[in-house]
Design a protein around this nucleic acid. Structure first.
Lengths: 208, 208
DNA sequence: GTCTATATCCAGATAGAC
DNA sequence: GTCTATCTGGATATAGAC
């Protein structure tokens, strides 16, 4: 049984979701900086003041968009298929991240490029991204990328591929298609380095 | 001998340069999106309408800033020291680019992240960047990065290092310090690949 | 919850006096 | 060339009727 209160709450949440969806539509067509409360209200068939019943300020709206975008990226990455080995799994995650990023450049911009002077995401929203990066780090370690430097370089490559793709060939796959290669090169290099390091240590230990 | 006309022209150009410098000061402190003609005028001790004697519109001002920023990045990269071999030279160029980018994040944003909805740089300004990229490509080829994929990956790495540095540790060098390593790994990988390819071809040709 | 009306502020840009 | 005054338009946000 559902009480009248629950119905009201649901309606409200549905309306909030509608507004958020409309906001993304506008942002995707005109950019984040061009989003205004007036236009947004018109997009959902309201006048601007009515929006303030759902979001107390534009910053709250942006924060909700940020949180939603982060959640989406998070799901994309988490739902990427597990590979037959850590390397494949890492590649899949990287591919999922890059694909999701270039598929919605303005989402990427909002999440990672701080395009709005006054806006700072709430700590909870930021936490989603940090958790995902920590998970990815664990998988990268399993795949052979130990040490902070290796991880940093890995993250930089995926980020760079996204940036180049969006900036120079939006909608294409010239850089997107390099994800596997980039990851493989890194892993190959560092596992080979480890091999050498280990071999040297064994020799030094007098083993083998 | 200098005519009265030249003096006037010089004064005018000096004023334009002053305005541009003031614009960069404002942008560096508050972000590109926050730049307004009023504030800019105040920064140089004028009222807003006077600015229109030097730049016919805000877009023209932004384009001048874009061109100037591109020129600066260009000089930084071109003035990077020539190494003892192509690999060193390429590393120096990459380091110069990354250092210049992280040293002024808002310049980087204006040049490479299209933060302003309506603004599109003029073709001449864009050409500066393209020429530099072409030069870098030639050096990369000399260093062993043949083929488009290799070059694309190289550019992506430098861009990604900049992006991560600015986003996660502005002012630091955690990612900046990885430039050499990233370049070296790429070159090592692809020259090794070439070696193998050449060896195979020689065998197939019956040579050796 | 949604509206009209409005407050307040700021933007880019122009007209025209000096 | 620089100014005052102003146009035009847009922004976020609030008050208060319904």
């Amino acid at each position: 049984m559902v009480g009248a209160r629950d119905v009201r709450v649901r309606k409200r949440e549905w309306a909030r979701a509608e507004i958020l969806a409309a906001a993304w539509r506008l942002v995707r067509s005109d950019g984040i900086a061009a989003l205004s409360m007036r236009d947004l209200a018109a997009e959902v068939g309201m006048r601007a003041p009515s929006l303030y019943n759902y979001f107390p300020s534009k910053n709250h709206l942006l924060d909700a968009m940020y949180a939603q975008g982060m959640q989406q990226m998070d799901e994309l990455v988490r739902n990427s298929p597990r590979g037959r080995n850590p390397r494949e799994t890492l590649r899949n995650r990287a591919r999922a991240f890059v694909a999701g990023a270039v598929q919605d450049p303005f989402r990427f911009q909002l999440l990672f490029e701080r395009p709005i002077p006054g806006f700072v995401p709430s700590p909870e929203s930021l936490a989603v991204g940090l958790t995902r990066m920590k998970e990815t780090s664990e998988m990268a370690v399993a795949a052979g990328l130990r040490g902070q430097r290796e991880l940093d370089l890995f993250m930089a490559i995926t980020r760079g591929l996204v940036a180049m793709q969006i900036a120079n060939e939006p909608g294409g796959d010239r850089w997107v298609s390099l994800v596997d290669e980039g990851v493989d090169i890194l892993i190959a290099h560092y596992t080979a380095t480890d091999q050498r390091r280990r071999t040297r240590r064994q020799r030094a230990d007098g083993a083998d």
